[in-house]
């Protein structure tokens, strides 16, 4: 504890400094860079509080993908330039006091915890063997609370449908424009070398998720990032929204999930119940399908909708 206290304190101070800087800095580009840096540091925090799975997700989704998406959006930075009305000082003070009160309340909850910390860990450990997976997080996501995970995938799909529904009329069905205007030679080289390695790493991270930190969400984000790199380097263009192959890729994971879930009624007596001894292979089948679908969803969320000028 003593020698890690330096690290912990410095990490917290840096993160709070970055957060304040993000709020006060004028330049939007700088604020987004700050957010990206913040996400990378936040992943170190998750490692320090014994949640490596969450840290991995934060690296992939929270820092990397969100930052890239914020920069990708054309016209986003200048949106609301007209809205320069600075709130009055009394209002700013009021908001400051209220936000401070919320922070103090949460802080008090942290400093004065209940006498017995609530935990479901013993219950999760008790049935871990019957799921056949060694990582308790994966067991929670794929066995104990599999229905949540299914709905989460559907939420991501709904978000994608929402994004696509914002396509301008003239551009519907077109390919989103992702490729950089002119591709520097080093990027081309990197895209050709890094992407195959990245795909291997993405599948590896999904595979080790059964027993070590990892899993399909993290692996799928890596795959989506690699896909994005290919599209940015102009090696392949983004698929058209109306592409049948794209749409099949998007639904194959949820479809396998539903199929195995419904067959649970017949073989194990409940929706999403796995028959004895088959839990691990069934979980692997669902994860493989979801890997493809989530990678496609996240990749298309990163690419955004086609805009004016991206005519089919």
């Amino acid at each position: 504890m003593t020698e890690t206290a330096f690290f912990d304190t410095l990490l917290v101070v840096t993160m709070i400094g970055l957060a304040i800087w993000m709020i006060v800095v004028r330049d939007v580009f700088a604020a987004i860079i700050g957010f990206m840096a913040f996400g990378l540091l936040l992943s170190l925090v998750w490692l320090r509080i014994e949640a490596p799975d969450v840290g991995l997700t934060e690296i992939a989704v929270g820092g990397g993908a969100t930052g890239v998406m914020l920069l990708r959006a054309r016209g986003l930075a200048s949106a609301g330039d007209a809205m320069n009305a600075v709130p009055s000082v009394p209002f700013r003070v009021l908001v400051g006091v209220l936000a401070g009160a919320v922070a103090l309340f949460l802080g008090a909850l942290v400093v004065f915890p209940p006498a017995v910390a609530p935990t479901l860990a013993p219950l999760a450990a008790e049935h871990l063997a019957s799921t056949g997976v060694g990582n308790p997080i994966t067991a929670v996501l794929m066995a104990y609370r599999a229905f949540d995970t299914f709905l989460e995938t559907v939420v991501v799909l709904l978000a994608l449908i929402g994004v696509w529904s914002l396509t301008p009329d003239g551009a519907w069905g077109a390919r989103p424009r992702v490729a950089s205007a002119d591709v520097p030679a080093p990027l081309l080289l990197l895209a050709q070398w890094l992407v195959p390695l990245g795909i291997v790493i993405g599948i590896y991270i999904t595979w080790v998720g059964a027993d070590e930190p990892g899993g399909k969400f993290q692996g799928a984000t890596i795959l989506a990032a690699m896909w994005m790199l290919v599209m940015m380097a102009g090696l392949r263009s983004a698929p058209a929204l109306s592409s049948r192959r794209l749409r099949i890729a998007l639904v194959v994971g949820p479809a396998i999930f539903i199929a195995i879930g419904v067959s649970g009624f017949h073989f194990a007596g409940a929706f999403l119940a796995y028959p004895d001894g088959l839990a691990k292979p069934l979980i692997l089948a669902i994860e493989a399908g979801l890997l493809i679908s989530i990678a496609a969803m996240l990749g298309m969320l990163l690419a955004g909708p086609p805009l004016e000028g991206d005519r089919p």
Binding site: P186, L190, L194, L197
Partner: peptide, 16 residues
Amino acid sequence: LLVQFAGATGAQLVAR
């Protein structure tokens, strides 16, 4: 090796 390779490319792009 990954950091080397990507760092070199990144530095090129930043210089541009």
